[in-house]
Nucleic acid binder design. Structure first.
Length: 771
DNA sequence: CAGTGAGCGAGCTTCCGCTTGACTT
């Protein structure tokens, strides 16, 4: 018999809360939303005030049954989903789907998982807030309308299976625009001048930089000629106190950024590790936009700091969330038990936990105190020119004892240490000076984490969707994450030593990228198309605008269906207009003429992605096609490069009576022999690879396959039993089947295999039928 | 996993935001 049933969103949360509430309460979880708009068609009745058609989510059938049974038994059901738009909707869906009795249902909320907060919530129940629910329905319906009307348009006009949406399309836009900025970027340069001084007694050295950069080589020479026999005198030594404050505790987005900067984790890696820490009870909820810490946590942090570092390191701080549209249903991400400085777990979990511990503790520590010193050394006879030396001394480390936030800009901060004891009016000798040509750097490309940061600033997306959004735009091949090597350039360096001026040239590498996001051709073409016809949805402030409207629905000042109608009417009109009036958008570009046939050579996006084509379909002969390589782009490929693509496949010769050919497929370059495919290695080039090397690759591949092979049957139907990443499996007619764990793969007979294949097939047909 | 690209037409793809396991080759 259940007296009180409490329903929360997450099972880990349910477990914790159950401990606080005692015997009379049973706590269960809904595992997020339990129903959603029908997947077929729009799932919205446009003629009946945009009435949503909700269906119970298939993977929630068991959860719903369990909750329904428990709720029937219970004397009181407490709906304890989060206190934001989505949480309120979850409570309402539960109320509807479980057919709850209003008299026996209470809605409660809490922002932190502490016994006090939960007890307080139980004592202050309320009713379901239908205005908030309606704001969520508006959000849901708008996203469906945008996504399910724009995507099919793209299938028609660009390429099948593409997608567009309020969040993902703007994310791609950010990348495309940044990429174009980089392409258009013309670097500027100037000479940075550094000098090395010494006192008259040669007791110390002082490095200083000229306060102005000089435009070119000749200016530097002139300048050096003027100063080479000059006397220098310190005009001033200024000392200023300064302070540094710790960063706020982690939210989802700042955790993703720091884990990327400090450990190189992808956003999805960070979230997987955080999920494990959360489930093990080590940290609070990891999908949050709040920087708030509970009073209990603040007290615990203070105690830790006093104990570990002493009272002068402790300072109680409260942080306020500044990001747009934050809904603050949870606390910041922090350790559940601050006295645990380390945990036992995998190394990734340990590192992430330790980072969270440090950030949380540091956020409750005192400021660091510094003294900044500036020494000015004017250049005589050249007005406003002076050499400046800057130093920084740490007087009190404060929070820096524990943690320092990293920065995105890679340019290394020059070490500003302690300066020598130079006095005002002191005379100095110029020992040596050097000017180096410095180019301005192009705008930085986005990383996964810096894109999340930007989206959060714009109020686009939610903590639970940052990682999935990043993965969606990569899955659609709008964006690729990769490393690119830098380019070389020559820079000038001019030196002044012993009153002589010399110059030399040096090589430097610039623009190399690691783990950055690059828009693809498809991403660019789709972006341009959407920008042309749907500038409102693509606007960076579109989400912020509709959020304002959702807020007024939540406050009861606006009817949700009216808001949707106002958006949808003109939007749908634009969809219809684009459908009728826009050409197929394929990023087509004619490169020139094929010297062999005289036919035009062009590139465009085909059914399978970017491709090159010789001739047109109107010709008598069929046109020739070839896919572009992954490092080639519609906007930049040359005629020569395109023509090269048609040199494949190449026939290299014969091995064991069968031909060896080399070509490029969906997964990159490969050699082929007697039905066997072997990928080329990085150092191999399909255009130049020779027979001997190809044979080597084929033999390596044979060996690797033999290692994988457990046994094979050459009966009526060929069957192989192989070892894979996920354990042994059976391959048959190019399809794979799992082997049950209870079976020893070594002992399988031909008949056993057929049986497993049969069962596997049944499973698959069932699944497809369901869909 | 690896030769695709016209056109015919059926049937499929797709959104964002809440949550975890089941599943993969």
């Amino acid at each position: 018999m259940i007296k009180n049933l409490v329903i929360v969103e997450s099972p880990a949360k349910a477990k914790t809360i159950e401990k606080f509430l005692g015997k009379d309460f049973t706590v269960k979880s809904s595992y997020g939303h339990i129903r959603d708009l029908a997947k077929k068609d729009l799932g919205i009745d446009k003629d009946k005030g945009y009435k949503p058609k909700y269906l119970q989510s298939p993977d929630k059938k068991n959860v719903i049954k369990e909750l329904r049974d428990a709720s029937k038994e219970a004397e009181m059901v407490w709906l304890a989903s989060d206190e934001d738009r989505e949480g309120e909707a979850i409570a309402w869906h539960l109320f509807e789907v479980l057919k709850l009795d209003k008299e026996k249902t209470r809605r409660i909320v809490f922002h932190e998982i502490t016994p006090k907060a939960i007890k307080n919530a139980i004592e202050n129940p309320r009713e379901i807030d239908y205005n908030l629910v309606n704001a969520q329905q508006a959000r849901r319906v708008l996203d469906r309308l945008v996504g399910f009307e724009l995507s099919p348009l793209l299938w028609k006009k660009v390429k099948p299976s593409l997608s567009a949406g309020r969040v993902q399309s703007v994310a791609v836009r950010l990348l495309v625009e940044r990429e174009r900025e980089i392409i258009a970027f013309k670097p500027d340069y100037a000479y940075k001048v550094q000098a090395n001084f010494s006192d008259k007694q040669r007791k110390y050295k002082l490095n200083a930089e000229l306060n102005k950069r000089l435009p070119n080589h000749d200016d530097v020479k002139d300048f050096f000629d003027k100063i080479k026999s000059q006397q220098f005198q310190v005009s001033s030594v200024q000392k200023k106190p300064a302070q540094k404050s710790p960063a706020a505790p982690f939210t989802t987005s700042t955790l993703q950024q720091e884990a990327a900067r400090k450990f190189g984790f992808s956003v999805s890696q960070t979230m997987t590790l955080a999920q494990r820490l959360y489930e093990a009870g080590h940290i609070t909820y990891m999908r949050t936009d709040s920087v708030n810490l509970s009073n209990d946590a603040i007290a615990a942090a203070a105690e830790q700091i006093n104990q570990l570092y002493g009272e002068k390191y402790q300072k109680t701080r409260k942080y306020a969330t500044k990001s747009k549209g934050a809904q603050e249903a949870h606390e910041a991400i922090r350790p559940t038990y601050l006295q645990k400085q380390e945990i036992e777990a995998g190394s990734g979990e340990q590192r992430l936990y330790s980072l969270i511990w440090k950030r949380t503790v540091a956020s409750q520590m005192s400021n660091a105190k510094l003294e900044k010193t500036t020494i000015n050394i004017p250049v005589e006879h050249i007005n406003s020119y002076k050499f400046v030396a800057q130093g920084e001394v740490l007087l009190f480390d404060g929070f820096l004892k524990v943690y320092m936030e990293s920065r995105d800009d890679e340019e290394q901060q020059e070490d500003k240490g302690l300066l020598p004891p130079v006095k005002e009016q002191e005379s100095l000798d110029l020992m040596h000076a050097r000017a180096q040509q410095r180019y301005s750097s192009q705008p930085p490309r986005y990383t996964e984490a810096s894109l999340v940061k930007k989206l959060e600033e714009l109020g686009i997306g939610r903590p639970s969707t940052y990682a999935p959004t990043i993965s969606t735009i990569q899955k659609r091949n709008y964006v690729v994450k990769e490393d690119r090597p830098g380019k070389e350039r020559t820079i000038n360096e001019i030196e002044l030593k012993d009153q002589k001026v010399t110059s030399q040239k040096k090589q430097e590498t610039y623009g190399s990228e690691k783990g950055k996001l690059f828009p693809t051709d498809v991403g660019m073409v789709v972006n341009d198309y959407l920008m042309e016809y749907f500038d409102n949805v693509m606007d960076y402030s579109f989400t912020a605008q509709v959020e304002k409207e959702f807020d007024s629905i939540a406050e009861g000042n606006r009817k949700w269906s009216a808001m949707i109608d106002e958006f949808y009417k003109p939007f749908h009109h634009k969809v219809e207009y684009a459908e009728e009036n826009s050409e197929r958008k394929a990023g087509e570009r004619i490169l020139g003429e094929d010297p062999k046939s005289g036919k035009p050579v062009m590139v465009r996006i085909g059914k399978y992605g970017p491709m090159a084509q010789i001739g047109t379909v109107d010709d008598e002969e069929k046109p020739q096609f070839a896919s572009l390589r992954s490092n080639q782009h519609l906007e930049t490929i040359t005629l020569e490069e395109a023509l090269d693509l048609f040199k494949l496949p190449r026939n290299l010769g014969e091995l064991e009576g069968k031909t060896v050919t080399v070509s490029v497929g969906r997964f990159g370059p490969y050699v082929r022999h007697d039905g066997l495919f072997a990928s080329l290695k990085k150092e191999d080039d399909p255009y130049t690879i020779e027979f001997d090397r190809a044979v080597e690759l084929i033999k390596d591949k044979r060996e690797a396959d033999a290692k994988k092979l457990i046994k094979s049957f050459d009966e009526k139907e060929k069957i192989k039993v192989q070892n894979g990443k996920y354990g042994p499996y059976i391959t048959h007619k190019r399809k794979n089947y799992r082997i049950p764990k209870s079976v020893d793969p070594e002992k399988l007979t031909y008949e056993d295999c057929l049986e497993i294949i049969d069962k596997g097939k049944n499973k698959k047909t069932k699944k497809t039928k369901k869909k």
